[in-house]
Design a protein around this nucleic acid. Structure first.
Lengths: 196, 196
DNA sequence: TTTCATAAAAGAACGTCATTCGTTATAGCA
DNA sequence: TGCTATAACGAATGACGTTCTTTTATGAAA
């Protein structure tokens, strides 16, 4: 019929936004800068995405999933249950919640200002919790996915994930060093690996 | 010398801001609305506070401290260590992180957008973690404040606190019901109370 | 009481941003 | 070669935190 959306423009928007967010933060990444980086007018961004937040979720969701799946593979390579669980917890809290790109930090900014109109659905969180359960079941002989203690572990781990991401943000703002997170990781591991 | 700041105006600003935040959220509470509620011009707000965020911290800090101290007293009234720790965890996660006023929810919005210029200092978090250690020591015979496992528990509990507050915000936005948090609470209690 | 310096109070203006509106230009189809 | 839907654009719009400029009230000194 008429003119058609250009996939390369859509990609340019995502690429530009991703590099802006990684360089600064969600708040400092303006639609104007995203558009400039993509070589288009700011108003044209809205032909491809309905809001700035949606652009960000379009970037974050596959990134997060890829990180978790990579972690799953890394865990599978380890031999003992203890090492596996340690890697799972450490990977989530250090590599993903406190990632170099700052994507998760940006997630906190995004979620904090979510409004009903943005129609945010916490599918990603549910997916992550289920994935954690699955990884633990593969790591520990005899662990059952329905075990409420296991589900509690997964939920607690994701709540801690959010907490760490939140803390990372404000600590960076306060120029404060990362607190000793290893004790917390040990405690979480201890929940599943009986050892005292 | 000259005209002097009116303490009642300062209080009017705080009262107006507190009720606005409780009714809506941090983001929806504009300086203009705060000023209107206080019966002054928006610009005059800046004679008493240097930023909107500072107004909020002025409200939140004493509120949070009072909540924690009240919780401490409630815990002291209970008899068994198990009940005490249960109350501590439940009080923090349900009554304070998921409070009716929405103050803690607003904290997440504030922290998420903290910029270095706002000079946020995480004193409150450190105070809370130390307080948790103290409450646990009073609850459990022989618990030592220096015990790294105890400090890890306190840190984990506060990270979970942030996570819950964060979740509350976005779940409210998604009109989703509160997930079953009791399993998580049980798991946290289990860290200190050896039982299953 | 009058004067005067100081600072609170008010109002207008600024700068920033996400988003929308009105218009133009262009890709696809008859 | 037109015709049409719509991508693309530039110029608004509307919010909002904050600052600038001006006015006004206060309290101390004369």
């Amino acid at each position: 019929m008429a003119r058609v959306k250009n996939e390369s423009v859509r990609q340019a928007i995502l690429t530009s936004a991703a590099s802006q967010i990684a360089m600064t933060s969600y708040m400092d990444t303006t639609v104007a800068k995203i558009a400039k980086g993509a070589g288009i007018a700011p108003s044209n961004v809205y032909v491809y995405f309905e809001s700035k937040l949606q652009i960000y979720f379009t970037i974050y969701t596959p990134w997060f999933e890829a990180q978790v799946l990579a972690l799953e593979r890394a865990v599978a390579r380890l031999k003992t249950p203890e090492r596996k669980i340690q890697r799972l917890v450490g990977g989530l809290l250090n590599d993903i919640a406190d990632d170099k790109t700052g994507y998760t930090s940006a997630l906190m900014e995004g979620l904090a200002i979510v409004m009903p109109k943005d129609k945010y659905k916490p599918d990603l969180l549910h997916w992550a919790e289920n994935k954690i359960v699955q990884i633990v079941c593969n790591a520990i002989e005899g662990a059952k996915p329905e075990d409420p203690r296991l589900r509690a572990f997964a939920h607690l781990l994701m709540l801690t994930f959010d907490g760490v991401a939140m803390r990372v943000k404000s600590q960076r703002a306060a120029n404060e060093s990362t607190a000793n997170r290893s004790d917390v990781e040990e405690a979480l591991v201890g929940m599943l690996i009986g050892g005292r």
